[in-house]
Nucleic acid binder design. Structure first.
Length: 861
RNA sequence: GGACACUUAGUUCAGCGGGAGAACGCUUCCUUCACACGGAAGAGGUCACAGGUUCGAUCCCUGUAGUGUCCACCA
């Protein structure tokens, strides 16, 4: 027997281990059609947060739902080595342990990093288990494991040979804290307060000067010219002349170039080819020198004279002071401008000329864009995110993939010690003693981009690859579309010539109650484990997947988790009621039109409609809408109506009682199966308490609409009964009568009712009643319904009655006016659909008849 | 500077070309034998604003305002 109260802790106890050990999570049943997903691999840097909980619960719902539908479901787990993030954390840990990280070797560091990985992988496994995820651990992968490394090498060499990977000197974003290059999207532009400084660049051999503005005076040491627009009348006279760089006294040319915007600033622009992408282009165009002026940690280098060794921002201040003292400083203005920060550590990123490896993106992007126009396109859910993807693809720049780190896939390029010749190859050259391997590793996203097929064993032609790739579906948040989704798409198309997944389901971000992003600095993060401890994992899962529409953000609101737990308790108790009403050894009745009461038919019809609505929305990945249909059915149709009324039927002897019991069981089981993908633990617990259950709810099939029960038979009678009960209850409240007060009732029927009619009306109105053909001679309060009318003949309060009648008359009149307006509009008659016109006419008739009736009654009070 | 989203009940959010919905909160009543983590009843909304399309707009279109997010090298 179930406890009176649903206790998540007891319910969750041991179930996950059982499912896992029974092999329910393991894919491979070849008698079924495959359905596959790969998990977005979490970073091995820390605990999972609510965003992960949301993301994985969505996938788990899909996996469990598809499994119930009879698919061979593979949900492949794994983790990401997360190069920069992990290396930074491991380094920080080593520093805190007192280890001198400047002396550490690559091999030593990697040893520590792997230890770190194993430790954090354990945490992640525990959290996955707590969340109840149906992951096939037999296929778990890590982005840095042996097989994936092989895939990465192969892809690198392949792209290199196709000319899609090249090494080049370009301006990249440099993270001076991590001392590595970054790709464009790893740089966050934020509006910072800064200054625009104006300096005098004196014309050589002249008293005149150009006024030049900059936000980064320290880069003046790298200036190789000053540019003006060739059409700028102010400066035409200076074409061909030279200026003196006020930072270092160097003489540099004035170059006219149309890149310069006449209207912006002073119209004279200093040009620093090694530290600005636009300046770099100009430098290339005119064959200028491109001196780099920073060290790797963004201190000033030997080109900066006495400023050498200073931090870039300290140098900035000192230099300004010095220029001021020479009289070449004009002014400074406070401005807000976009400054690039490292996504990982928020330091100010420095654009720097550097030799790096790049992926040539244009051809890959074109391939992806073209694919979206064909039949084999990736289906974005919701669709608008396809625009986000395409827009990025259309404006893409080459991807800098080398990172000056240790933790990652080392670039398979080898340099000849003498000749410097570059060999790019999956394996080291035979005479490796003459070569050194490139020190850099690849951007983490390079390996994650291969995830959907590298995890399946590619480049080997494995059974899994054959069977489960392309995957069916990928679930991720919108903030990761550029980083990951797009890269999987172009890598997959280029390498396997197939899309990586059929559907990509995009969800939003979890925010706090005030709508702010959860972050460490705000301290507003919520630990999913704490929520689980308090409310249970099922409540958390239900909350996460039913409180937002696809693609929208969600706020974490604790009361809503509570409310989810209440719902589960409601289901729990309805199950308790049903099970307690079933005697030991009960044999279910075969349900048919002949033995079902109108009440049963009504309920089963509602149940079938619910199955249909839930399934339709599950198919659209709209778990919020799906759950709402079930929720309303559980509360309104099942608990409030059927379950209460079943109490009357259960008191009867014989077939009717067993039919009721059977309907109760059938409905309960369906509810359990429909809620199961959302809340597997409570579903399993309740399921195992059902008579004639299988070994686990995980072996059940998803409920299907049974057409024989999809029928409106009996609906009219039930509607009438519900109307009567509602009005009687209402009447008692309005008149301050006890809920069980006995009233005198007369009822006029427009339909033929069953024997249950009297039973149910009596039980829920606590009153006897007469069936009458004509109520015109009676005195009392009249209620008109679709399928009959009712008069309360005793306990009548005339004032209340009058007020109520007047209210109803007013409502009716407005309804009539509305209908007449529409029907008197010739355009409506001519242009609206026929059914619409007909139904409007019918409505008008109905309201007119009712109005007449009501006015009659009002006179008679 | 572009792009996308959002603006609906006190709050958080659904929804929709033909009389506005849920949850939570609030008010009144009820410890009746599944559940007080409950039940019954109820109050509460010019659906941001202005135009347009339409027989009819909260819904579609355009614009405006506000909010948020993403993208973008203007010195």
């Amino acid at each position: 027997m179930l406890d009176k109260r649903y206790s998540p802790k007891d319910v969750e106890q041991g179930k996950y281990e059982t499912w896992k050990s029974k092999g329910y999570f393991t894919a491979g049943d070849k008698s079924k059609s495959p359905f596959s997903m790969v998990i977005p691999p979490p970073n091995v840097t820390g605990k999972l947060h609510l965003g992960h909980a949301w993301n994985t619960t969505i996938q788990d719902i899909i996996a469990r739902y598809k499994k119930m539908q009879g698919y061979d479901v593979l949900w492949l787990p794994g983790m990401d080595h997360a190069g920069i993030a992990t290396q930074a954390k491991v380094m920080a840990k080593l520093v805190s342990l007192g280890i001198d990280v400047t002396k550490i070797t690559r091999e030593e560091f990697l040893k520590y990093a792997w230890e770190w990985k194993h430790e954090y992988a354990e945490n992640i496994h525990e959290q996955w288990a707590k969340m109840g995820l149906m992951l096939d651990y037999s296929r778990e992968r890590f982005t840095l494991d042996e097989g994936l490394n092989l895939a990465v090498r192969k892809v690198f060499v392949d792209l290199y040979n196709k000319g899609l990977i090249y090494q080049g000197e370009r301006i990249i974003s440099w993270d001076p804290v991590q001392q590595t290059a970054l790709s464009n999207i790893e740089v966050i532009h934020q509006d910072d307060e800064g200054y625009m400084y104006y300096f005098k660049y004196h014309i050589e051999n002249s008293d005149e000067y150009l006024e030049v503005a900059t936000t980064r005076p320290e880069t003046m040491f790298g200036d190789t010219c000053v540019c003006v627009n060739p059409e700028d009348e102010r400066y035409k006279k200076y074409h061909g002349k030279k200026v003196i760089n006020p930072a270092n006294g160097e003489i540099i040319p004035i170059i006219p170039d149309e890149y310069v915007d006449i209207t912006f600033g002073t119209g004279a622009m200093k040009c620093t080819p090694a530290h600005d992408p636009n300046d770099f282009n100009i430098g290339k165009k005119y064959g200028l020198e491109m001196p780099t002026i920073f060290n790797k940690d963004a201190t000033m280098n030997e080109k900066c004279g006495k400023y050498q060794g200073l931090d870039r921002f300290v140098c900035r201040e000192k230099l300004i002071e010095d220029i001021k003292s020479r009289g070449d400083f004009i002014k400074q203005e406070k401005i807000i401008h976009a400054v690039g920060h490292s996504q990982r550590n928020n330091c100010v990123v420095e654009p720097m000329l550097s030799k790096q490896w790049f992926v040539k993106m244009k051809p890959l992007a074109e391939e992806s864009i073209k694919n979206q126009q064909g039949k084999d396109r990736v289906n974005f859910v919701p669709q608008r995110f396809e625009n986000t993807f395409l827009q990025w693809m259309n404006n893409i720049e080459d991807w800098c993939i080398s990172r000056q780190l240790w933790w990652g896939h080392r670039i398979p390029a080898y340099y000849h010690k003498v000749t410097g010749e570059v060999v790019v190859s999956e394996n080291p050259p035979k005479d490796m003693e003459n070569y050194v391997q490139d020190n850099d590793v690849l951007d983490t996203w390079f390996s994650s981009g291969l995830w959907p097929f590298s995890t399946m064993g590619w480049p080997e032609k494995t059974d899994d690859l054959e069977r489960y790739f392309p995957t069916s579906c990928l679930v991720t948040a919108y903030d990761i579309i550029f980083f990951w989704v797009s890269r999987m798409i172009f890598q997959s198309l280029n390498i396997t010539h197939r899309k990586p997944f059929d559907d990509v389901v995009i969800h939003g971000l979890v925010r706090d109650e005030l709508g702010r992003k959860m972050s460490k600095s705000l301290g507003n993060g919520v630990d999913p484990i704490e929520v689980i401890d308090q409310y249970g994992v099922d409540a958390l899962r239900y909350f996460l997947t039913t409180n937002s529409t696809p693609g929208q953000d969600m706020r974490y609101i604790e009361e809503k988790v509570q409310s989810s737990a209440n719902y589960l308790n409601k289901i729990w108790n309805s199950a308790r009621y049903v099970l307690s009403s079933i005697p030991e050894g009960f044999v279910e009745v075969k349900l048919s039109k002949d033995n079902l009461s109108n009440l049963d038919k009504w309920l089963l019809n509602r149940l079938m409609i619910t199955i249909k609505n839930v399934t339709n929305n599950m198919e659209k990945y709209d778990f919020n809408a799906a759950s709402n249909h079930l929720y309303n059915f559980v509360y309104d149709d099942f608990c409030s109506q059927y379950l209460e009324m079943s109490k009357v039927k259960l008191n009867e002897e014989g077939l009717s009682r067993d039919v009721t019991r059977t309907v109760l069981l059938k409905t309960l089981k369906t509810i359990i199966l429909l809620i199961y993908p959302y809340t597997p633990f409570i579903a399993e617990e309740l399921y195992l308490n059902l008579p004639n259950h299988l070994e686990s709810v995980m072996l059940e099939s998803y409920p299907k609409v049974e057409k024989e029960f999809l029928s409106e038979d009996g609906k009219e009678e039930m509607d009438l009964i519900f109307d009567i009960i509602r009005e009687v209850r209402n009447y008692k409240i309005v008149n301050s009568l006890a809920p069980n007060a006995k009233l005198g009732l007369s009822i006029n029927l427009k339909i033929i009712v069953s024997s249950d009619f009297a039973l149910l009306v009596k039980r829920f109105t606590f009153s006897d009643f007469d069936i009458v053909d004509d109520m015109s001679s009676l005195k009392g309060e009249l209620f008109t319904f679709d399928y009959g009318s009712m008069m309360i003949t005793s306990g009548v309060n005339k004032d209340e009655m009058k007020e109520k009648l007047e209210k109803e008359i007013a409502f009716d009149k407005s309804a009539i006016a509305r209908s007449e307006n529409m029907l008197n509009n010739p355009n409506f008659i001519a242009k609206a659909p026929k059914e619409k016109v007909e139904s409007e006419k019918a409505k008008l008739e109905l309201h007119l008849a009712k109005l007449k009736e009501l006015e009659e009654k009002l006179k008679n009070i």
